[in-house]
C-alpha cells in the first residue's frame, strides 16, 4: 500500500493535467480543473515558504543551542530572518489588520517603518544589505569565468580549437571595442557573427539540446506516471 497509493496519486494527477490540456475550459469540467489544480498548487506553494522558515529556524537554533563550530554564523542567520520578516508583517496604520491593537501600545508615527513600502525597515535592509550581497556573489562569476577560460580553453585538438576561436569571436562581438576591431577586417563581420554563429550554429545546437531534453522530460514523466520510475519516492 505504501508503494501503490503514491503511484496511483501520481498517475491520476498526471492524467488530469494531460487530459485537461485537450479539453475546452468553457464547456468541460476537466478543462477548468487544470486551472483549479494550479490554484491549489499556488496555495501549497505559499505554505511551502512557511515550511522553509520553520525548517531554517529549527536547523539553525539547534546548532546555536549546542554551540557547535561556527554557531555565531547560525545566530547571524536567525537574527537576519527575524530582522527582515517581523517589521515587514507589522501593521502599517491603525486601520491595517491588528493595527488598532498594535498602535494602542506603540506610537502611530512608527508605521512608516513597517510593511514593505519605500522607507520601511524591510526596504532599507533589502536595498542596502541584501541586494549588494547578492550582486557581489553574481559578480564573482566574472572572476570565475576568467580563470575557467584560462584553464579550459586550450587548443588541444581540432574541436577545442574551433570552440576557442568561436568564443573569442563572440566575446569580441559583444563589446563595442571588439565590434570596432572586427570591422577593420570587413564591415560585415559583426553581422556575420550574428547570422552564422548566434542565429546559425548556436540556435541549431540549442534546438537540438532542447528537443532532446524535452523528450527526456516527457519520457521521465511517463515513467513516473506509470510507476516504472519510483526512485524519487524512495522506492527502488
Amino acid at each position: 500500500m505504501r508503494t501503490t497509493l503514491p503511484v496511483i496519486i501520481a498517475f491520476i494527477s498526471g492524467l488530469i493535467m494531460v487530459v485537461s490540456f485537450f479539453l475546452n475550459p468553457q464547456t468541460t469540467f476537466l478543462g477548468n480543473t487544470e486551472e483549479e489544480v494550479l490554484q491549489w498548487a499556488s496555495i501549497i506553494g505559499g505554505f511551502t515558504l512557511l515550511l522553509g522558515v520553520v525548517s531554517i529556524v529549527r536547523v539553525n537554533s539547534k546548532t546555536v543551542g549546542q554551540r557547535k563550530k561556527g554557531w555565531l554564523f547560525n545566530l547571524a542567520t536567525l537574527i537576519s530572518i527575524f530582522a527582515m520578516a517581523i517589521p515587514s508583517i507589522l501593521p502599517v496604520t491603525s486601520q491595517s489588520n491588528f493595527g488598532s491593537i498594535f498602535y494602542k501600545v506603540f506610537p502611530e508615527s512608527w508605521g512608516s517603518l513597517f510593511g514593505t513600502a519605500p522607507g520601511s525597515i524591510y526596504d532599507w535592509l533589502f536595498n542596502y544589505l541584501d541586494s549588494p550581497m547578492m550582486a557581489t556573489m553574481f559578480a564573482m562569476l566574472a572572476f570565475y569565468i576568467a580563470s575557467a577560460a584560462y584553464r579550459a580553453f586550450r587548443a588541444r585538438n581540432a574541436e577545442a580549437t574551433l570552440l576557442l576561436l568561436t568564443a573569442v569571436l563572440v566575446m569580441l562581438w559583444r563589446i563595442p571595442m571588439g565590434e570596432a576591431f572586427l570591422r577593420l577586417f570587413g564591415d560585415n563581420i559583426p553581422g556575420y557573427i550574428n547570422t552564422y554563429i548566434m542565429n546559425g550554429a548556436n540556435a541549431a545546437v540549442q534546438r537540438g539540446i532542447v528537443i532532446g531534453a524535452a523528450l527526456g522530460a516527457a519520457s521521465m514523466s511517463l515513467r513516473i506516471m506509470l510507476g516504472i520510475e519510483r526512485t524519487y519516492m524512495g522506492k527502488g
Partner: peptide
C-alpha cells in the same frame, strides 16, 4: 560552464536517462 570546469558533463536528456 560545467563543460569548462567539470570532468564529465551529462547534457540534456542524458540527465533524465541517468537514473535508468
Amino acid at each position: 560552464f560545467f563543460v569548462a570546469a567539470c570532468d564529465y558533463t551529462l547534457m540534456g536528456e542524458e540527465l533524465y536517462a541517468a537514473s535508468s
